[in-house]
Structures are given as C-alpha cells and as structure tokens.
Design a protein around this nucleic acid. Structure first.
Length: 612
DNA sequence: TAGCGGACGC
C-alpha cells in the first residue's frame, strides 16, 4: 500500500512541474493542497488529482502528456477513462476517443456511466459514424442510461448529424420527458446544419410557444437558421428578440447576427452592425471577412489588414476566406504572400486551407503550384480532389483530370454530384467525348448519383463541343424535369459553335422564356444569324435588344503586371497602366500566333458593335 | 474528479 502511494506521489510531482505556472494556479486540485508541492505530500485521492490533471493537459493541448499520465496511472477508474475519451473528443481526435472507449469496455472493471456515454457519443458524431452511435445507444438502453438528459441530448445530436434523416433525432427528442435548452438547440442545429433552415425555425417557433427557457445558444442558432434560408425578415425579428431578452452584448450571438446580415446580402447593415458592436473577437472578424469574400473580395483583403493592425492574429478560418478572395481576384502575388503567412504560422497541414490553396493557385493560372499543394497533402477529402480536378479542367488538362478521378475512386472516396460535374466539365473542355459519356453512365449506374440540371448542362456542353448537337438535343428531350437555363445555355453555345440557326433559335426562345431580359441570349442568337448570313434576322434581334433597354454588360478582363492589377475592356484607352496592359496583350498575341491560333473574327461582329 | 448545444471552403 505504502509503495503504491509513494509511486503515485512521484508520478504527480513529476507531472506537476511540467505545467506552466499560470495553468498550475488554476488547477482545481491545487486548491485542495494547502501545502506547496515541495512540502511533505498529503495524498487526498490521487486518482482524482490525476484525472483533473489529465483534463487540464487536454485543455492546454498537451495531448501526449495526458496520455502518458493516463498510461502511468496504476489504477484507472471510469472517471479517468471518461476524462480521456472527453479530452480526445474536445481536441477533435474522435477515432482515438472511440478506440479508448472500446478499450475501456474490455479493460475497465467499471461499467460506462452516463458521463462516458455522452462523451463517446460526441466522438461518434465527430466520426460521423451512425453504426458506432447506434451501438452506444444500444448500450445505453441495456444499462438503463437512456432517459438521462445528457445521454439523450448527446444521442439526439449524434442522430441529427449522422443519420440520413431527422427521424431518429426527432424520436429521441420526443421521448425526452423534461427537455432543457440544450435539447431544443440541438434539434434546431440538426435541421439547420443539414440545410433545412425552415425546419430549424419551425422548432424554434415551437420552443417559443412552449415557453422553453431561452439562452444565447438558442438565439444564436435561430439566427443561423435565418441566415441559411437567407430570410432577412425573420432575421430582423429574431435580432429584435435578442435585444428584448438582453443577449445583445453576447459576442457569439452578435457574430451570428453579423453572419445573417452578410448571408442575406445586406452588407451596409452588416458593416454598420460590425462597427456598433461593443466587443469583437476573432470570429467577428472572420465572419465579416468571409461575408465579403464573394460579394467584394477587395474589401475582404482590406478588413484582413485592418484586423491584423488591431492585434488579432488570423487563424485557418481567416486564411481560408482570404485565400478564396485572392482566388476570386486572381491576384497571384497577393495569394503567394498570404501563403507565406500560412507557412509562418504553422498552419500548413490544415485540410480546408490546403483545399483553398489548390483552388487559388489554379484560378491564378499557376496549376503547377496547385498540383504541388495537392501532392504534399497528408490527407485529402472530396473537396481536395474536386478542387484539383476543376483546376485541371479549366487549364485544359482533361486527361489529367480523368486520371485523377480514377485515382480518387481507387483511394475509396465516393464521388458526389460536384466531382462528377468537375470531371465532365474537364472532359468537355478537352474534347474527351467517350470518357465523359462513360462517366455520365457510371454516375447513374455505379454510384446512383442522380444528375442535376448542371450535370445535364455539362453533358450537353460535352456533346455540343464534340459536334453531336442532335444527340445533345435528344438528351435534353429525355430529361426527367424541365431543362433550366444552364442546359439551354450550353445548347445555345453548341448551336453558335456549329452555326445552326434553327436549333439556336429554339434554344434562345427557351432561354428567354426562363429569363426574358437576358441581353446575352440576343447577342448569341444574332451572332448565329450573322455567321449564317441571315442579316434580316440579325437586324430583328438588334431591334429587340434595343427595345429591352438594357445593354449586355461589357466583358472585362484583367492582368497582373508588376504587382498591379489592371482591369480593361475592348478598345479601352483610359484605364490605369494601359501601356503595361497593351504590352502584355501584344506578348499573348505573339504566343498565340506562334502556336498557330487563327482567331474567328466573324462571331465578333455584334460584340464589337456593342463595345463588348 | 469526467459529459450535451453557437463561425469557414469546391
């Protein structure tokens, strides 16, 4: 007995000195120890101390130390095992947490209790493993642990996140006799995170009508639900309710409101709200930067520099948005600088960040660096493969995209609609007709992925570019739903490329039925008529366009010369640094001529007349 | 002594 105490004392003393003083002072167990550690040691339940220490190690990210301490513990009770499972889960090491749970089931003499089950359910949720979660559910029923609120809430969360529908989650929710705020917010989150914001709002409404206790979490997720459906009206109402309940100074709630204004496209209101906020954290900045990324990427970059000047250090979320902003603007040198910042901060292994870097380099015209990032990734998800395939496709590397798709399937990643769209588009641009059609067939036959409008658009484009306009038309006729503008747009493009005015007229009519004021459609059709020498029809189109009153917006291009981005349009004489722009264009022209390119000037008649 | 809910990307 003495020996055991002595070894425990040594163990704690050795670990105690590894903890930074600031953390050491905050440890709960030091409050019980009135004597300093150098004084004769008074053991007061060392297992409790070790468990507390494990928890503290996880809190400060010392995962290895936590595990070493756990390994060194002579006796490990259910609380110590649970602290380990919860610790790994809190650091996003879900698989590790699950293995520990399985190990505990084999080795620990104690039964898992409600603490253990709720922690391991969180790990199942993290792994997105319905089968593991269902296993824990079975265990909970067997041990009479279902009915404990924490277990039920964790079960509800697991089913909401892992199951294909919300049915199981709703069943668990309805069986909770005394629901708390967590039960409600978990259900609302479940609906919202799977894209059913209206479902989430419906539950929130019910929560209000049943006069359930409201807290900042419930408001935060309700505002998120409004944001996901883009409902400014509901968002405004909930914003008013937030103020009424006195949560207007809660930073996470304010962040959700800010996000809602951005997602509803109300950027003036978002900015005004941002500057009126009594307190901001990193998430506040990240929310606004992410909000502006698509709408106004320049503003995103400006906010990024302002954020840094105010002492906030960017994290992987910030960089993901900033890299996307650089990709949108196609500013390579800026993207490279931000990439340097990522390396400097040791964020290189972050998956989402690497994915956005692949996309950025490809969009900035540097497919080699894009590929380099892809190759250096230690793990890849579907987005990584998709981004690389899109990059290859837009650069005309159809064969590489096809090879990548096959490699992805070999590495057991199941393709989705988006990745099929990427590979089909790559085939289309590289003229790989047979491969493209094979993927289209395999998508439905082998993977049961239903083609959406955009995929039909890709296949119509694939057939059209290969000159199979009749087959493209037959495909449109065979579609189970009414073709949308992406399908007819692709077909009209094919008609223009192959000079087929009658088909073109039909495609343009269908497009104009869907979007009557699209001047681009008139331009396209008039060009088809012009190429066919049908000047009467050409003139009719021009007249119709004038009647519309809206001109097709002039297409703008931009080049980056000496770290300066210059935007210009056809015949532009007044833009900034035009001498640089024309210098670069002359160079491009020479390259094209050397490569044997002969421009098709016929189709430009109307565009030039229109200044587009 | 240990546990459940709020921000990003193609």
């Amino acid at each position: 007995m003495y020996q055991t105490w002595n070894s425990r004392k040594q163990l704690f003393t050795s670990h105690y000195h590894k903890i930074p003083p600031a953390i050491r002072n905050s440890l709960q167990w030091t409050q019980n120890c009135t004597t300093p550690i150098s004084q004769p040691f008074q053991p007061k339940g060392p297992s409790i101390l070790a468990t507390n220490l494990i928890k503290s190690y996880f809190e400060i990210g010392l995962i290895r130390e936590a595990h070493t301490l756990f390994d060194e513990m002579p006796e490990r009770d259910v609380v110590a095992w649970t602290a380990m499972i919860a610790g790994y889960t809190s650091c996003n090491y879900y698989t590790r947490a699950w293995s520990l749970f399985c190990e505990m089931m084999r080795e620990c003499p104690d039964h898992p209790n409600d603490f253990t089950l709720s922690s391991s359910l969180k790990a199942c949720k993290g792994m997105k493993s319905l089968s593991c979660g269902t296993l824990v559910h079975g265990l909970a029923i067997k041990d009479g642990m279902d009915g404990r609120l924490y277990v039920d809430n964790a079960l509800l969360d697991m089913y909401a996140m892992c199951s294909v529908s919300m049915d199981e989650a709703c069943m668990v929710f309805h069986n909770i006799t005394v629901k708390n705020a967590v039960s409600w917010t978990t259900l609302i989150t479940g609906y919202t995170h799977r894209g059913d914001g209206y479902g989430g709002l419906q539950v929130f409404k019910q929560m209000l009508s049943e006069e359930a206790e409201q807290n900042p979490f419930s408001f935060s997720i309700a505002v998120r639900a409004c944001a996901s459906v883009g409902s400014y009206t509901y968002g405004k109402q909930i914003h008013a309710a937030v103020t009424k309940h006195g949560f207007e100074s809660n930073i996470p709630v304010m962040n959700s409101i800010l996000d809602m204004y951005c997602r509803c496209g109300c950027f003036c209101e978002a900015k005004q709200y941002f500057y009126s906020m009594p307190g901001r954290d990193l998430i506040t900045w990240n929310t606004l930067i992410a909000g502006y990324e698509k709408f106004n990427p320049d503003e995103s970059l400006y906010l990024f520099s302002k954020m840094e000047s105010q002492g906030f250090s960017p994290n992987c979320f910030t960089f993901t948005s900033i890299i996307a902003a650089c990709a949108q603007l196609a500013v390579l040198s800026c993207g490279q600088q931000v990439h340097g910042g990522i390396v400097q901060r040791g964020l290189v292994g972050n998956l989402a960040l690497s994915n956005s870097l692949i996309d950025m380099y490809a969009k900035c015209g540097n497919i080699i660096d894009s590929h380099k990032i892809f190759c250096e990734m230690s793990s890849r998800d579907l987005v990584s493969w998709t981004s690389m395939m899109i990059g290859y496709g837009t650069h005309g590397y159809g064969k590489e995209a096809v090879e990548l798709f096959d490699e992805m399937v070999r590495s057991s990643i199941r393709p989705d609609q988006i990745v099929f769209m990427a590979v089909l588009s790559a085939c289309s641009h590289a003229g790989l007709l047979d491969e493209g059609l094979r993927y289209f067939k395999s998508m439905v036959g082998d993977y049961s992925v239903a083609p959406n409008q955009e995929i039909y658009g890709c296949v119509v484009d694939l057939l059209g570019r290969a000159g199979k306009v009749k087959e493209a038309y037959e495909l449109i006729l065979s579609m189970p739903s009414k073709p949308d503008e992406s399908v007819w747009g692709a077909f009209l493009g094919a008609c223009k490329a192959h000079g087929l005015p009658n088909f073109g007229k039909m495609a343009a009519r269908s497009l104009l039925d869907l979007r009557p004021n699209m001047s681009g459609t008139y331009v396209m059709l008039s060009n088809i008529y012009a190429a066919d020498g049908r000047w009467g029809d050409f003139a009719k189109m021009r007249k119709l366009m004038r009647g519309l009153g809206n001109k097709k917006e002039a297409g703008r291009s931009w080049v980056e010369v000496r770290n300066q981005v210059s935007s210009f349009f056809v015949g532009d004489e007044v833009g900034l640094h035009m001498e640089w722009v024309y210098g670069v264009l002359e160079m491009v022209n020479q390259h094209m001529q050397e490569a044997g390119y002969v421009p098709d000037l016929d189709c430009l008649i109307h565009d030039l007349e229109d200044g587009t």
